[in-house]
């Protein structure tokens, strides 16, 4: 600090004593409003420290006891309270009743879209378009386990081939190749016969050899003409929708060693109202019967 404070002639303000090439630094006092704002901020900060958990010490929550987790829980509680009246109505209605009521249907589709995105889209795709590797499309008109509202609701509720629910539907296609039920040549013939069911066969002799094998081994589930059976989850083999590969080699590979899909029982994870909403939403994707 300089011992002698020099006053600037023009402004009348003290200088700090710092000088660079003849330029002297003025010691202009802070504006009053600024200073008082600063003091007000200090007071605010002190009050804040007392009221809120501002000190990073275990157990210090401030006298208000505020926590971020508590705040979010409170907000969630508010949100739940707000949606509960509607959810109660959706819970007590059947999917058919919801679909028939325009108000409930609109709510179920809007909410079902969000629930679907959280729970279903990982396997079935964002718009229910399905995915390679055995995740069926929910937007087309082919249903493995039934496509009316009741069947969709049942599938979502209990799932497929899981160990969670006793009511989950289970069906097993035999591993015709791996377990040696059919020879490799027979499997290829059966695959050609499957192509023939959809009028796609290119080798009539081969299909003819496969036909009796198909009738003996496959028709009980998939039907004489490959029309499928939703009661046992046997897909239609005569149409143009294929969950797995649709060429002869792919079909043969599947017959030899089938990989059947598994789906969790969502009733164990979601509120019944949400399951109802999901059923109505999935039904509306375009394939619902």
């Amino acid at each position: 600090m300089p011992t002698k404070i020099e006053k600037d002639a023009i402004t009348g303000t003290d200088t700090t004593g710092h000088e660079w090439d003849g330029l002297k630094e003025l010691n202009t006092p802070l504006p009053t409003w600024w200073l008082y704002t600063f003091y007000a901020c200090c007071v605010f900060a002190l009050v804040w420290v007392v009221l809120y958990p501002a000190i990073p010490v275990q157990g210090w929550t401030g006298i208000t006891g505020w926590t971020a987790r508590g705040a979010i829980n409170g907000e969630m509680e508010t949100a739940r309270a707000r949606t509960e009246p509607m959810l109660a109505r959706l819970r007590s209605a059947t999917p058919e009743q919801i679909a028939a009521n325009p108000e409930l249907r609109a709510y179920a589709i809007a909410g079902g879209r969000a629930v679907f995105a959280n729970n279903c889209a990982a396997c079935h795709g964002a718009g229910g378009q399905g995915a390679r590797g055995g995740y069926p499309s929910l937007a087309d008109d082919e249903w493995i386990w039934g496509g009316d509202l009741g069947a969709i609701h049942r599938t979502i509720t209990h799932g497929i081939r899981n160990h969670d629910s006793d009511e989950a539907r289970v069906s097993m296609m035999p591993r015709f190749g791996v377990d040696g039920v059919l020879t490799r040549a027979q499997i290829t013939d059966v695959a050609e016969q499957v192509l023939a069911l959809g009028n796609r066969s290119t080798d009539a002799a081969m299909a003819a050899r496969g036909a009796p094998l198909y009738a003996e081994n496959c028709a009980s589930c998939h039907g004489e003409r490959g029309e499928g059976n939703t009661d046992v989850g046997a897909p239609n083999l005569s149409d143009r929708v294929w969950l797995h590969a649709s060429d002869r080699a792919g079909i043969a590979a599947y017959i030899a060693n089938p990989q059947m899909g598994v789906m969790p029982a969502f009733a164990q994870r979601l509120d019944p109202a949400l399951v109802n909403m999901l059923a109505v939403y999935v039904h509306s994707l375009g394939g619902g019967r």
Partner: peptide
């Protein structure tokens, strides 16, 4: 237009857009 899926193949081979 629906973007997911872009189109759906129905069981009779028909193409559907939403």
């Amino acid at each position: 237009r629906d973007r997911a899926p872009l189109y759906v193949t129905l069981s009779d081979g028909a193409i559907r857009n939403a």
